[in-house]
Amino acid sequence: MESAPQTELDWHSAKALLDWYVELGAVDAVGDTPVDRYALAPPTPKQAPAPKAAAQDLPKRATPKAPPAAPSIDYVALAKQAAAGAQDMDGLKAAIKAFDGCELKKGARNTVISDGNPAARVMIIGEAPGRDEDREGKPFVGRAGQLLDKMFGAIGMGRDVPLSKDAVYITNVMPWRPPQNRDPSPEEMAMMVPFLERHVQLVAPDLIVLMGNTPCQAVLGKRGITRLRGGWHEVWGKPILPMFHPAYLLRNPAAKREAWADLLNLQAKLKERE
Score class of each variant (00 low, 15 high):
residue 1 M to V: 12
residue 1 M to P: 11
residue 5 P to R: 14
residue 6 Q to V: 13
residue 11 W to T: 09
residue 12 H to V: 11
residue 14 A to F: 09
residue 15 K to A: 14
residue 21 Y to W: 14
residue 21 Y to C: 14
residue 22 V to H: 10
residue 33 T to K: 11
residue 35 V to F: 04
residue 36 D to W: 06
residue 40 L to P: 15
residue 42 P to C: 12
residue 44 T to W: 10
residue 45 P to V: 09
residue 45 P to F: 00
residue 48 A to G: 02
residue 49 P to L: 14
residue 58 L to Q: 11
residue 58 L to W: 06
residue 60 K to V: 15
residue 65 K to V: 15
residue 68 P to M: 12
residue 68 P to Q: 12
residue 71 P to L: 09
residue 73 I to G: 09
residue 74 D to V: 06
residue 75 Y to F: 15
residue 77 A to H: 07
residue 78 L to C: 03
residue 79 A to I: 09
residue 82 A to W: 10
residue 82 A to V: 08
residue 85 G to K: 15
residue 89 M to F: 07
residue 93 K to S: 11
residue 93 K to I: 08
residue 94 A to M: 04
residue 96 I to M: 07
residue 98 A to V: 03
residue 101 G to V: 04
residue 103 E to D: 13
residue 106 K to L: 12
residue 108 A to E: 06
residue 110 N to R: 08
residue 110 N to W: 02
residue 112 V to G: 04
residue 114 S to D: 12
residue 117 N to V: 01
residue 117 N to L: 00
residue 117 N to S: 06
residue 119 A to H: 11
residue 120 A to L: 02
residue 120 A to P: 00
residue 121 R to P: 03
residue 121 R to L: 11
residue 122 V to N: 00
residue 129 P to M: 02
residue 129 P to Y: 01
residue 141 V to Q: 01
residue 141 V to I: 09
residue 141 V to A: 01
residue 143 R to W: 10
residue 145 G to N: 06
residue 146 Q to H: 14
residue 151 M to H: 08
residue 152 F to R: 01
residue 153 G to F: 02
residue 155 I to R: 00
residue 159 R to K: 15
residue 159 R to D: 07
residue 162 P to L: 13
residue 162 P to H: 08
residue 163 L to G: 10
residue 164 S to K: 10
residue 166 D to G: 05
residue 168 V to K: 00
residue 170 I to V: 15
residue 170 I to C: 02
residue 172 N to R: 06
residue 173 V to A: 03
residue 179 P to G: 04
residue 183 D to S: 14
residue 185 S to K: 08
residue 185 S to F: 05
residue 185 S to C: 05
residue 189 M to C: 09
residue 190 A to D: 05
residue 192 M to T: 00
residue 192 M to D: 02
residue 194 P to G: 08
residue 197 E to M: 11
residue 198 R to K: 15
residue 199 H to M: 15
residue 203 V to N: 03
residue 204 A to R: 09
residue 207 L to N: 02
residue 208 I to R: 00
residue 209 V to P: 00
residue 210 L to D: 00
residue 212 G to P: 00
residue 213 N to P: 02
residue 218 A to P: 02
residue 218 A to E: 03
residue 220 L to F: 08
residue 223 R to S: 15
residue 226 T to R: 13
residue 226 T to C: 09
residue 231 G to N: 14
residue 231 G to A: 13
residue 233 H to F: 15
residue 234 E to H: 07
residue 235 V to Y: 03
residue 240 I to E: 01
residue 241 L to K: 01
residue 241 L to S: 02
residue 250 L to D: 01
residue 253 P to R: 09
residue 255 A to H: 04
residue 256 K to T: 12
residue 261 A to M: 12
residue 265 N to P: 02
residue 267 Q to L: 12
residue 267 Q to D: 15
residue 268 A to R: 09
residue 270 L to T: 04
residue 273 R to F: 07
residue 274 E to R: 06
